[in-house]
Design a protein around this nucleic acid. Structure first.
Lengths: 346, 346
DNA sequence: CCGTTGATTGACAACGTTGTCTAGAGGCTA
DNA sequence: TAGCCTCTAGACAACGTTGTCAATCAACGG
C-alpha cells in the first residue's frame, strides 16, 4: 500500500498540520510545536526526526491558529490616501522597514481620499486584529475608532491629525513651511501672490492656507480673494485656476502651489506662457532640479514621517502609556530658481 | 451591583466575543453568528436585541478565528522590489484595486532586491495563509514555493518570470521595447550607441540587453564591449559608466538607459556636457516631458501589469486550472526630443 | 538500594468562530 | 384532533495552534 494511502493522505489544497507531522515523526503534537518554535527541551535526535517530517511533508505553521491562540498578530496596518502617489512611497517604505525590524508584517490599503472607504478599511484591519494602525486620514471624524483604541489597538495618525478623538499624530510643519515659501516670494519682490491648494476639508490644505495668509499679513500685503483657489487637484481645475489668476488685470506675479500635484500642473501651464512667473511648490519631487528653471520647493520628509510614526506606534505597543502627543516634522525650503524669479513688469 | 461587575466585566485590552454578545442579548452563540453574517433564520425582534448588544459592547468579529474555521483568508500578498520606487506605485495600486473588488485585503512588503528577504517574506505570507501571491521576484530560484503552490496558494509573477518552477507570469515586452528604442536611435543616424543597464542577474536587464544587440545586429552595426555597462543602478556607478563611454576616443554618440533610475542619472550627467547626446530611456517617469530636451522613452504600463496579474490570480482562485502561462504586455516608444538628437560630429 | 532531581515528552484545554444536527414551537391539512 | 411541515434557535464539535500540567525516565547522592 502506497505511502499516501496510509491514513495521512493529502488532497490537493490541503496542508499538513502539526498533528500530521507528529504522526509521521512518531512524537507528540506538543513536541512538534516545540521544534517549530525553537523552544528548549528537545533532544537533538527527536528534533532531527521532527525536522525530517516537516520537510518531507512540506509543513508550514498556520499563523491564523497561532494568532488566535496568542492574541498578538505581529502585523500592523497602514492606511494611506493613494498608493500611487510618489509622496507616499518613501513613507510606506519607512513604515515597512520599521515593522520589519520589529518582526511585524505590514497590511496596507488606500482610501482614495474617501472617508467611508477609510473607515471600511480600518475596521477590516481591526477585525484582522492588527496590533496597531498607521493612518493617513481621509475623513475628519474618527470616533468610530474609539472602541478599537479602548480594546488596545494602538493608532498613530500621519500627515493629518485625527478628527474628534485624541490620538498620536505625526505632522509636517505645514503652516511654517507655507509661510516660509510665501515669505521667500515676498523677499524676491512679489506683492501679488496666488495660492492654489487642495480642498479645505483637508487639514494640510487649511494649514498651508493659514501660512500663506500669515506671510502676507506679516509683510503688510493685502490678499485679493481671486488669488486663492482651493479645491480638487485635478489638472483641469488647477490649469483653469492658474490661468485665471495670471490673466486677470493686476493678476498675480507669483504662485505658491499647495502640493506636488498642483506644482506639476502649474509647471506645465507656466511653460506655455510668454513671461516667466515665479513658483514655489509644497513637496519636493524627483527631477525638480532638472526642469528649467529648476523648481524651488518646500520639502517635507515623508520617510522621516513614516519612521517617526511607526517608531511611536511600536513604543505604544511596548506599553508606553503617555497621553497622545503630536509630533511636528520640520520642512525645508530649497531654492532652485523658480522661486527667485522677480516680478515681471506689466 | 454595577453592570460591569455582573460577570461580563471587560479589562482594557480585552475584546468582547460572540459569547459575550450572546450572554448580553440572552440568546445562543450561533444566533449571534447568524446576525453578524447576515444569515437567514432570525426573527426581526431577536436580531434587534443582538444588534443592540453588539453596539453596546463594541463587538467586532475576530477574523483570525473566522479564517481558521473557514480556511479562506480573503487576503492576497504582494511582494515587490522597492515600495518607494515610483514604477511600482501604480502597480501596487492596481493590484489593491482588483483585490478590493474581490473583497480581499492586500498584504505587502518589499524585498529590497534581496533574494533571501524575498523568500522570508513570501513564506511569512504563506504562513498567514494568504489565498494568493503576486510576486515581483528578486531571486532566480523559486523552488521553495513548490510545496505552497501544491498546497493551493495561487501565485502570479510580475515584471520578471519565476526561476526553476512553472508559474504564471505577466511581463513587459522588454526585448521588443529595447529593440525599438535602439532602432529609433539608429534611425536618427547613430552608429555607436551605449547601453547602461541593471545587473545581468535580473531578467529584464538581460532581455533589454538582448534587444539592444538585436537592433544593432539588424542594422549591421558592430558593438564594442566598452559600450555596454551592466551593474548596480546606483548614481555613482551610472555616472562613471556614462562618462567613460562618452569620453573614450570614438565614444558613443547616443545612450540607451536600461531603466528609470539609470535614465534620471543619465539626464543629470548629460546636462553637464558641452554637446548634446541622444538618449532613450526604458520606463516613463513623471515630468519626462518637462525636461529640456524632453526625454524619449519606451514606456511600460505598470498599472496594466498589476491589473492583469491580479485578474489572473483571482481567476486561479476561482478554480481555473489551465497550465501556467506567460502574458506579455506591450511597450510603447514615446518620442519627445532626446531620442531624436542627431549624432554630434567630432 | 531508594528518594530526589532534572530533563524530556505528551495529554488536554483553550483561543473565537462556523457547520451540522437536533429540539421545540407553531401553523397547516386531512 | 392527529400528523406533518416549516421556521427559529441552540448545543456541540471542529479548525490548528500554544500554555499548563503531569508523567516518565535516567542519573545521582546518601
Amino acid at each position: 500500500m502506497s505511502d499516501t494511502a496510509r491514513g495521512t493522505s493529502r488532497r490537493y489544497g490541503t496542508r499538513p498540520t502539526m498533528k500530521d507531522v507528529a504522526a509521521r515523526a512518531g512524537v507528540g503534537l506538543k513536541t512538534v510545536s516545540r521544534v517549530v518554535n525553537g523552544e528548549p527541551g528537545v533532544t537533538p535526535d527527536t528534533e532531527r526526526r521532527v525536522q525530517e517530517a516537516i520537510t518531507s511533508l512540506g509543513f508550514r505553521r498556520n499563523d491564523s491558529a497561532r494568532i488566535l491562540r496568542k492574541g498578538r498578530t505581529a502585523s500592523i496596518g497602514l492606511v494611506l490616501e493613494d498608493l500611487a502617489d510618489p509622496f507616499y512611497g518613501p513613507l510606506n517604505r519607512a513604515v515597512e522597514e520599521v515593522a520589519r525590524s520589529h518582526g511585524a508584517l505590514l497590511i496596507n490599503g488606500s482610501s482614495a481620499e474617501d472617508p467611508s472607504r477609510e473607515q471600511e478599511l480600518v475596521l477590516a484591519l481591526c477585525a484582522r486584529r492588527v496590533d496597531g494602525l498607521v493612518i493617513i486620514p481621509a475623513g475628519d471624524d474618527h470616533r468610530y475608532l474609539e472602541p478599537e483604541i479602548t480594546a488596545g489597538i494602538a493608532t498613530v495618525f500621519v500627515d493629518r491629525p485625527a478628527g474628534r478623538i485624541e490620538a498620536d499624530a505625526v505632522l509636517s510643519d505645514n503652516y511654517g513651511g507655507a509661510r516660509d515659501a510665501v515669505a521667500h516670494l515676498i523677499a524676491h519682490g512679489h506683492r501679488r501672490i496666488g495660492f492654489i491648494g487642495d480642498q479645505p476639508r483637508i487639514h494640510t490644505a487649511r494649514e498651508r492656507l493659514r501660512g500663506y495668509h500669515a506671510a502676507m499679513a506679516a509683510a503688510g500685503l493685502p490678499v485679493d480673494d481671486s488669488w486663492v483657489s482651493l479645491g480638487s487637484t485635478a489638472p483641469d481645475r488647477v490649469r483653469a485656476a492658474t490661468t485665471t489668476m495670471l490673466d486677470a488685470p493686476a493678476g498675480v506675479t507669483a504662485l505658491f502651489a499647495g502640493n506636488n500635484r498642483v506644482t506639476v500642473t502649474a509647471v506645465r501651464v507656466l511653460r506655455e506662457r510668454p513671461r516667466p512667473v515665479a513658483l514655489v511648490g509644497f513637496d519636493d519631487f524627483e527631477l525638480a532640479d532638472l526642469v528649467r528653471p529648476a523648481i524651488t520647493v518646500v520639502t517635507q520628509d515623508p520617510a522621516d514621517m513614516g519612521r517617526t510614526a511607526a517608531g511611536l506606534l511600536f513604543r505604544r505597543l511596548d506599553g508606553i502609556e503617555d497621553p497622545p502627543r503630536s509630533t511636528e516634522i520640520p520642512t525645508r525650503l530649497i531654492a532652485r530658481g523658480s522661486g527667485e524669479i522677480p516680478p515681471s513688469e506689466d
